[in-house]
Design a protein around this nucleic acid. Structure first.
Lengths: 202, 202, 202, 202
DNA sequence: TATGAATGAGGTTTCATTCAT
DNA sequence: AATGAATGAAACCTCATTCAT
C-alpha cells in the first residue's frame, strides 16, 4: 500500500492558502472531469501552482483524493453529529424527521462532489472517511430502532435497519442530485418521514 | 464523438463465438480488476485472442463497454418486461409485489457486473442502455400509480414516483450486493412491498 | 523489491532482433553516458525503437541493466570455466599462469562495459551476476591453494586467498582499462605470475 | 562547464560551522543513501539548515561533492606526505613497509566515505582531488623504484610501477572495506610487504 | 481474418535550483 | 544571512491503437 497521508502540514499562511487552493482545484476537476481525467497536472494548473508544489504537500494523486474525502466527510459528519443529540427524547416521528432532515442537509453540503466521489471513484478508492458517513447514519438508525423497539411493526431489526438506512440514503442522495426542485419546501422531508414511519411503526 | 457501434455484425458462427468470448472477458476483467485496470490487452488475453482481433470487432475500448452494457441491460429488461403484463388487472398490493420481485430478479442477473458498471465506470460512460433500465422501472411505477390513482394517499404523483422508484432500485441493488443472505426467502419482498404499500395507499 | 526479470521471451525473429538492439543500445549508452544519464528514452532512441517497445520486453530500467550484466558475466564466466579444467594437474607456476591469463581474457571481453558496470552502477545495483564472476575467480584460487598447500610459504590461507584474488582482479582490470599497450605480449602475464608465485611458494 | 568552487570563503566562525555541517551531512547522506538518493534537500535537512542556506555556500550539487572529495583527499594526502620523508634513507624492505602502512592508514581515514566516492559517484565526478591521491601514491613508488633501481629484478620499471601501485591500492582499499578483521595486527602489512619485495627485488 | 510487435502521447512523480520574505 | 515555498524540466512508465506479416 502506498502512502496516503499528506506530506507536510503547512504552517505559514502562504502555504495554508496553497493547500486550500489545491484541494479546491481537486474538487472542481473531480466534479468537472471525473477521477480518470483528473490528472495531477490539470489539478495543479487549475489551482494556479506547479505540479512540484502539489507534490510538496501530497505524496501522490490518491493522497489528494483522500484528503478531499476527509474534508468532505468531516463536513457531512458535523451535520449528522449535531442532530444525534436531538434523537434522545423525541417521539418516533420526530426522531425520524430529524434523521431524514440531517441526511438531506448532509448530502446538500456539496452534492456534485459527493456524487463525484461516490460514483466516479473506483470502488477500492472510496476511502474510509466516506464510508464512515454511512456508518454514522446507520448508527443513528440503530439508536432509533433500539429506543423504539416496542413500537416496531417488525421484529427482524436487522432487515428493518437495512431497509431504512438504504432508503433514506438513496432518497436524500438522489434528491440533491436529480431533484433539487424538491428541496425548497419541507414536503420531501414529510414524505420520506411518512414512508419510514408507516413502515416501521405498528 | 467517437464511433461506439461494433465494427461488423458477426453473422458467421465463428465470429459470433469470438465476439462472445471478448464480451465475456470484458465482463470478467471489469469485475475482477475494475475499469482502470481493464486494459484492452488484458481483455484480449483473457478472451484468448490477440488485441488485433479485438479491434477487428470493436473500434475502441468504449464500444466494448457499450456493447457489454447493452447486453447486460437487455437481460435485465427482458425480466422487467415479462412482468409488465401482470400489472394490468392486479390489486395494488399484488402489483407492487410484482414490481419489487421483478427488480430483485433483474438485479440478480449478474450483480457483480451490475455493480462494476454502476460504480466503477466513469459517469459519462454509463450509457443509455443502463439508464434505460431505470426508465423502464419508472415506467412500470407510473403505470401502477395511474392505475391506482384514486387509492393513493398523496396527490403529488411526481414525488411519489421519485420516492418509489429510487427506493425500490436502491433496496434491490443493495440487497444483491451486500445482503445475499436476504434473498433466499420471500421475506425481503414482503417487507419492501409493505414499505411501498403503506406509504402509497390510504 | 521490484521485478527484474525480462517481461517476455521473444519468439519471433523480429522481436529477437529488437531485444538484441535494445541490449546493445543499453551497453553503448551505459558506456558513453553512465548509469545516471542512461535514460530509457535515450536507450530506446539509440536502439531505434520507441520506449513502449522497450517496456514490452523489460519491466523497468533495472531489468535492462540486469539482463546486460547477465549477458556480460556469462561471457566472462565462459572464459573462466574453460580454464578450470586445466588447473588440475598443472604445476603451481603453470596453474597461476592459467588463472592470470583467464582473468585477463575475461576482463578483455568488453572492458568499457565492465568498467561502466563496476564503477558507474550504484553499489546496490551491482547484481549477482557480476559478483558471481568474482566468486568464480575466488573459487579457482581456493582450488589452487588447497591443491598446493604443502608448497605454500604461509599457513594463513585465508589472508593469502584475499591477497591473491584481489591482486589478480585489480591488475587485470586496471590493465585492460588503463594500459591496453601491456596486452600485446605475454610480458604482463609473466610478471603477474611471478608476483603471485614468489609470494605464495617457499 | 558549471561553477564548481564554493561560493564564498567563509571567514566568520558561524559560517565556517555551517559549511562544516553541510559537508558532514553530505558525507553521511552519501554513505547512508548513495549518490542517487543524496538530494540537496535531504542533505540540507540532515545538516539542520535550509536548502537556501546550502545554496548560499555551494553554487550547485557538484560543488558540494567536489568540496567533500577535496576535504577527504586532503586528509589522505596528509598521511601519505608524512611518510615520504621516511623513504629516503630506508632499506628497500623498510621503504616498502612504510608505503604499505601509509596507504593502509590513508584508506582507513574514512573507509565508507572513500568507498562511497569511489564506487557510487559517476566516474566523471570522481574529481581531480581523489585521483591526486593515487598520483601521490604512484609518485612515492617511483621514488622508491628509482632509488633502488640497481637491486630490482626487472628493468621494465613502467610495468613494475603499474603493478606495485595497483596492487597496494587494491589491497589496502579492499582490506579496510571487506576485512577490517585484518587490520588489528601487523600481519597484513607484513604480507603485502613480502608480496611486493619478493616481486621487485633480486 | 488473425496476429502481436510496435508506437508515442500523455500520465505520475522527482529534484536541482530560485527567490520573495 | 537564512528560510522554505515554489518552480518546471525531465525522468519513468502505461496503454489505446495501428499495421506489417
Amino acid at each position: 500500500m502506498t502512502q496516503l497521508d499528506p506530506r507536510r502540514k503547512p504552517r505559514q499562511s502562504r502555504s495554508r492558502a496553497t493547500v486550500d487552493a489545491i484541494l479546491q482545484a481537486t474538487a472542481q476537476v473531480l466534479v468537472r472531469d471525473g477521477y480518470q481525467k483528473a490528472t495531477t497536472n490539470r489539478i495543479a494548473e487549475r489551482a494556479g501552482v506547479s505540479v512540484g508544489t502539489l507534490y510538496q504537500y501530497f505524496p501522490n494523486k490518491d493522497a489528494l483524493v483522500v484528503a478531499l474525502c476527509e474534508q468532505h466527510s468531516d463536513e457531512m459528519m458535523t451535520l449528522l453529529s449535531a442532530s444525534i443529540a436531538e434523537l434522545q427524547d423525541a417521539t418516533a416521528e420526530r426522531a425520524t424527521r430529524v434523521i431524514v432532515r440531517a441526511m438531506l442537509q448532509a448530502h446538500a453540503v456539496n452534492p456534485e462532489l459527493h456524487e463525484a466521489i461516490i460514483s466516479n471513484l473506483p470502488k477500492e478508492k472510496q476511502f474510509e472517511q466516506i464510508l464512515a458517513v454511512n456508518a454514522q447514519a446507520e448508527a443513528m438508525v440503530r439508536v432509533f430502532l433500539e429506543h423504539h423497539r416496542e413500537r416496531l411493526a417488525t421484529d427482524n431489526i436487522d432487515m428493518a435497519a437495512f431497509i431504512v438506512v438504504n432508503t433514506v440514503e438513496a432518497l436524500t442522495h438522489a434528491a440533491v442530485i436529480e431533484r433539487p426542485d424538491f428541496l425548497g419546501t419541507e414536503e420531501l422531508v414529510d414524505e420520506i418521514t411518512r414512508l419510514i414511519c408507516r413502515y416501521l411503526l405498528k
